[in-house]
Design a protein around this nucleic acid. Sequence first.
DNA 1: ATCCGTTTCAAACGATTGTTTGAACACTGT
DNA 2: ACAGTGTTCAAACAATCGTTTGAAACGGAT
Lengths: 205, 205
Amino acid sequence: MSTREDILNAAMSVFAERGYYAGTVRDICDRAGANVAAVNYHFKDKATLYAEVLQHAYRNAGDGEPMPTLSEAPDEPAEQLAAWIGWYVRRLLHSGGTDVGRLMAREMAEPTEALDHLAKGAVQPVFGELGRLVDAASGGVLDERTLKLHCVAIIGQCLVFHTGRAMLERLDPPHFGQQDADEITSHIAASVLRAFDSSNEDASA
Amino acid sequence: MSTREDILNAAMSVFAERGYYAGTVRDICDRAGANVAAVNYHFKDKATLYAEVLQHAYRNAGDGEPMPTLSEAPDEPAEQLAAWIGWYVRRLLHSGGTDVGRLMAREMAEPTEALDHLAKGAVQPVFGELGRLVDAASGGVLDERTLKLHCVAIIGQCLVFHTGRAMLERLDPPHFGQQDADEITSHIAASVLRAFDSSNEDASA
DNA sequence: ATCCGTTTCAAACGATTGTTTGAACACTGT
DNA sequence: ACAGTGTTCAAACAATCGTTTGAAACGGAT
């Protein structure tokens, strides 16, 4: 029962690197050390294999460092938010190579039914937790719409290092990479905390 | 001299719908009303056609509204930066469902050789102009690395409304859409200008 | 009308794709 | 030892891909 999982892992890296169409079943089977017919035997066809790869990636999306959550009695909510940003940035930068992140990016560019489950099952909880952290770190004075704007802004500042990775690497000179996670994190955290002030001024004006 | 442009337009829609590998030369030529060999005659091969489609698409992405540039004698650099952000956000939100945006998103998720030319030819100038605007709006006190961090942060906050569009729409309740361009713009501009302050404090500390 | 460079066309080419086939192999229970 | 079930393998399959070919059609200049 080993070849089936070997193919599943090989397919995940191949699909992440080259995409669905450019990733060939021969490439997958070579990397899995299996015969060409193994895909059609263990899975029905290439499309079914891809669907199972997405589900497998979705299940293993959260392994590794656990997401920081808002503690019951928040002493330093700003630092908790900074910790969350660090967790998110590391997660994004670390999933650069042959990982879940690139599969998800592909799903964003070309949404399928799998994205619906992904949104409600994996993204919604993360977004909700970020909302609670932002609410606490800002002093709880933001209205719901402004709070969501801040959340999306945070997500965007982190996400660009993953979605824009291919472009950042090709700029002259190349910009930020995996080794700059701490620098990026502290910069975003400082900017975000400052940004709360402007919203507070608008609210009190 | 019509078939060349017909192929260019047909290729743009086909590549946007199906992607580079799934979009076939025969499909493009059928939609353009041309022969199968027309692609290899007017362009060298499929890859060259795709590269020209990308450049053509990115150049015409903001047709009508030109990119705001730093004026010779900057009176209000902060407002000039805000104008740039507004231009960029409108550009991203407006190209949401169109061919251009989908092409770029696909290229970021699945880079081809064409991305190299795109980076140096089309993206580098935009990024450079943003850098000059940020430098002016921040008072010219930021070191090069911090300035680039701010630039990437701005790009990210704008870009997330495009790259994360499919996800934002699937959240409960759905978040921001095309009609919120002004609200998004002013929020990002205010946040960014505030963020400069934190960098100044760090520099003087 | 004739020439010549440019453009179009139907047909075919070689390569690669996903998939199928049928025999060989491995292993378990009797 | 034997049958039976599940798995692997080399080889070939049909289909489709991008590209090439050589001739036909076009269009202006002489």
